[in-house]
């Protein structure tokens, strides 16, 4: 495969690429949005009970182990979900459980006890402590979890092409079937560039978001 194969493929298929990218991003955005809405509150709740935290984290860990193709395949056999977006979304949300809950839990738990005591001594309520102390101070760890979730979701979403999602993974799927190397490589490169790009951008944001006193050298 030469560079001209690659560029001619890009030129000829720009419309399809746009369509697939749009689908890809919609799925990722939906999945990450739903995951944040569910798992961040769950993570915060779990900081109240160590017993439940251990149980839920063990469950999340177990789910996280399941190979992504297996997860999609299992969900497809459940009549309520079947082929398509519902299964894809559910799988992605289940995968996000581990990094999000874990990071929220760790982030909040890592906050210095003395700081919380001091806040309580200043007369802050539980709610204000949560919003003004725990979340901002736990932010570096929470954001790292968010970053992992986004990058991972982008990658796994591509596999959802096998259960009927028309997204960037489809280039790889069809390229493999038709032994169309330019198609396959283009698909793989686009996804890789997006994943690496997101990882880098979120990494930069991560550095910005950390309160000055907390910056850790990497």
């Amino acid at each position: 495969m030469t560079l001209s194969d690659f560029t001619s493929f890009l030129m000829k298929n720009s419309k399809t690429i746009m369509e697939y990218s749009e689908n890809h991003f919609t799925l990722v955005l939906l999945a990450v949005g739903i995951s944040l809405a569910i798992w961040v509150p769950v993570g915060l709740l779990l900081t109240k009970s160590d017993k439940w935290a251990a149980r839920v984290l063990a469950l999340a860990n177990t789910i996280f182990c399941i190979p992504s193709l297996s997860m999609f395949a299992i969900l497809v056999t459940i009549p309520m979900f079947g082929l398509g977006r519902k299964s894809a979304l559910l799988a992605l949300v289940l995968y996000a459980m581990m990094p999000l809950i874990r990071s929220v839990y760790d982030g909040v738990k890592n906050v210095d006890r003395n700081v919380i005591e001091a806040a309580r001594g200043m007369g802050m309520g539980t709610r204000r402590i949560l919003i003004e102390i725990l979340v901002p101070l736990g932010m570096p760890i929470i954001f790292a979890g968010f970053r992992i979730t986004v990058v991972m979701t982008t990658g796994i979403a591509a596999i959802a092409t096998y259960i009927g999602e028309r997204n960037l993974g489809r280039f790889i799927q069809e390229g493999l079937i038709r032994s169309n190397t330019p198609m396959m490589v283009t698909g793989a490169l686009i996804i890789s560039v997006i994943a690496i790009g997101l990882d880098t951008i979120l990494g930069l944001v991560e550095k910005r978001i950390v309160p000055k006193g907390l910056r850790i050298s990497r």
Binding site: T154, I172, A188
Partner: peptide, 8 residues
């Protein structure tokens, strides 16, 4: 590591 498995 950031490269998705299916792309690899």
């Amino acid at each position: 590591q950031a490269v998705p498995g299916i792309a690899v």
